[in-house]
């Protein structure tokens, strides 16, 4: 009965294998997501209010909302910063500790520690670090005689996204670092030896052996970082509430404000749809681009 080509048997048991996961996923993620799609075409306000069908009116209202344009731009900045800062720190530390032997595990563990702190707590801690009068950062700059580098980390409109992103990336880079460490372990050591025999220096080895060897993991890390970046919420929410004067407002924070503070559920849902569509488009586009490079 059980043969290698038992397609029918496979079909039956595959339902048993996949069913429970699909049921939970469907009920608690997919269905709510579809319901959000439905809400985006209504004028729903509160949790239990009557809602009328309004077609694409919510999307029209979003297009006319000046804040939305700004929010999209800032979300893009946030996204790029997250990939560069968190992904970059992950790569740099991974490469650095990969060539360590005895202290490798120590550094790997220590550098990962920020990742165990919840983002809301990260926000509380870093807001205090950035405090212009009593903060750790400006205090440290003063102590090292670098007073001229003191900046309005959270008050300067040109700087605020960067500052909060650093806090968020501090929490986020650990997992990317571990992924890169894992990727580096898979690179065949003989490639480095061959490169060395050819007279390649440290940089050339990095450029011609490490980077190509990390191709797979890099794709994965960037995809993950793009998704995480787009979902960025807690640090902004705790540290700036989107301020000063909307300069750190992101898609997610604006959605929550629309839904809970503005009581405009329909419009919030429409923006959710935009966010999900963007997430999908970015992920797909990035992977297409990666494939095209092969």
């Amino acid at each position: 009965m059980r043969t290698t080509t038992g397609t029918k048997a496979d079909a039956v048991s595959s339902i048993l294998f996949i069913g429970p996961a699909l049921l939970i996923y469907g009920l608690f993620t997919l269905f709510p997501a579809l319901d959000t799609l439905r809400l985006s075409a209504t004028d729903a306000t509160g949790l239990n209010s009557q809602a009328n069908f309004v077609g694409l009116a919510n999307f029209g209202a979003l297009a006319a909302d000046a804040t939305v344009g700004r929010v999209l731009l800032q979300t893009a900045q946030w996204l790029v910063l997250h990939v560069v800062l968190a992904g970059g720190a992950g790569l740099a530390f991974a490469v650095a500790i990969a060539s360590l032997a005895r202290t490798h595990v120590f550094f790997r563990t220590a550098f990962f520690l920020p990742h165990v702190v919840s983002l809301a707590v990260v926000g509380v801690i870093w807001a205090k670090i950035y405090d212009p009068y009593f903060g750790l950062l400006n205090g440290a700059l003063d102590a090292f005689g670098l007073g001229m580098l003191k900046l309005g980390w959270l008050s300067d409109p040109a700087l605020v996204i960067f500052s909060v992103n650093v806090a968020s990336s501090w929490q986020g880079f650990g997992i990317y670092m571990l992924l890169f460490v894992a990727g580096l372990q898979n690179i065949d050591n003989s490639l480095y030896e061959a490169a060395e025999i050819d007279g390649a220096g440290v940089w050339q080895r990095f450029r011609h052996v490490t980077i190509p060897g990390l191709r797979e993991v890099m794709t994965f890390v960037v995809s993950l970082a793009l998704i995480n970046g787009l979902k960025g919420f807690a640090t902004i929410w705790v540290m700036t509430q989107g301020g000063p004067f909307y300069r750190s407002e992101l898609l997610t924070t604006y959605i929550v404000k629309l839904a809970f503070q503005f009581q405009e559920q329909g419009r919030a849902a429409a923006l959710c749809v935009v966010l999900c569509a963007l997430a999908m488009a970015i992920t797909v586009a990035f992977n297409r681009w990666r494939e095209s490079l092969r």
Binding site: P244, F245, F262, E264
Partner: peptide, 20 residues
């Protein structure tokens, strides 16, 4: 109302910060 509070508080940060 909530949406006005939000605009109100953001406007104040904008005024103090010299953004608007």
């Amino acid at each position: 109302p909530g949406n006005v509070v939000e605009a109100y508080l953001q406007a104040i940060t904008g005024l103090v910060g010299g953004q608007v």
